[in-house]
């Protein structure tokens, strides 16, 4: 009912759920051992930036395009080619269709 046979093993999500529940319990216990003097209405909630003043909220947020910058930079060559292929031109879309059809036909014809 719960598990599936993968051919070389099995997968039972209930075991995983049990592990998650145990992990959450441990997290809850650890959290309850923490300091009790935290107050939401005080300065405790302000971010600590090594003594520097906090910038405007808009400038503090790490934007989507900031993430994985290194990944993009290191694969610049790959992405230059990939973006060139995604031209947005409908003629190119059809051209790729013809190319794949030709390759497939050669494969089928040779066999």
């Amino acid at each position: 009912m719960f598990s599936i046979d993968t051919g070389s093993g099995f997968w039972n999500p209930i075991l995983w759920v049990l592990v998650i529940i145990i992990a959450f319990l441990m997290m809850y216990i650890l959290r309850s051992l923490g300091r009790k003097d935290y107050r939401k209405t005080t300065e405790q909630i302000k971010p600590f930036l090594s003594g520097n003043p906090e910038l405007e909220k808009d400038k503090m947020h790490v934007r989507g395009s900031n993430l994985y910058w290194g990944f993009r930079e290191s694969l610049k060559g790959f992405y230059n080619v990939l973006l060139k292929l995604h031209s947005g031109n409908t003629s190119d879309y059809i051209l790729w269709f013809v190319v794949i059809m030709a390759i497939f036909f050669i494969i089928i014809g040779v066999i």
Binding site: G88, Y93, F97, V99, I100, F105, I108
Partner: peptide
């Protein structure tokens, strides 16, 4: 053979198989 190639390629394009996928994100 021709019919097989035409059917698989045309439906593959409609299914978004690379490199015939470019219409899909648009």
């Amino acid at each position: 053979k021709i019919a097989f190639v035409l059917l698989i390629t045309a439906l593959g394009m409609k299914a978004g198989l690379v490199p015939m996928h470019m219409w899909l994100p648009d």
